[in-house]
Amino acid sequence: MTTIQAETVSGSPPPTRRKPRFGAQRANTLMWAGIFLLPSVILLILLRFAPMVAAFSDALAFGSTRGIWSNFSFIFSDPAFWNSLWITLIFSIIINPLQIALALGLAVLLTKHIPMVGLWRTLILLPVAVPQVVSAIIWLVLFRPDGPLNGITRALGLPSIPWLTEPGWALWSIIVVCSWVGVGYWMTFLVAGIREIPNSLYEASSIDGAGAWRQFWHITVPGLRRPLLFVLVADTVSNFLIFAPVRILTRGGPEGSTDLIMYNITERAYTLGDTGAASAATLVLIVVVIAVVAVQFRLMPGKD
């Protein structure tokens, strides 16, 4: 590789003494690259690779009389684990499109010339700055049967809503809490994306008589393809890993209706102390996440 490059550059055989100098320079570059990369590589190994290997070795029951796959057969024969996968799937199917649609709608709205746009943007982004645990505790009070939200419904002459106490409502309540935090965060990426779209496209299209709706579908959405793909993938992954709101608001209940997989895994590992089954469930989660993200990449039209 080195020789070919050298020959191409010079166009004739290089002087013999330049060869080792160039090799030394390249070795030097590689060494510096290595030194600069070292911190990241060390952190990657410590924080990503090592836990992954640990999860594998915990999940596979080496030396067990029950067989090496016993942790997997245990979780796959557990109705609670299947319920948790099912709930996570329903949660993902609802929350991801919902959050992205809301984030996109708000991003479009807040890049228009509306009064006090800075204030609105700050208000929408504010929940991101509140730690998840704190916001969950605030919502816990809001959702109480005799709490402020039911105070409003009663004032409107509506019946009290069993936000966290009825299986049909609890998952929706978790979706509300997660979206309250998530929508503002994902919106910022889309706002930045919209700013990148040349204004001339909008001007030209409006001269041609395109309305706001056509501009949105034919200029904004195609122009946002890359930030949208990022938001879609990152949002999906982060929603697979939701834990704090479930822990604080419902503990997976009522009747397992909010038992998202991350909570199920944590409960196995840290309440029941079954790290083997928890690691097996973690590996299942990783496979599911990779599969879903791969499908998302395939479904997103156009490639760079």
């Binding site: 106490t165 009825e166 503990r251 997976g252 209940g253 009522p254 009747e255």
Partner: peptide
């Protein structure tokens, strides 16, 4: 604890 929490909520 989970069972009685569910029963309290009407399960």
């Amino acid at each position: 604890n989970q069972a009685f929490s569910d029963i309290r909520n009407g399960a």
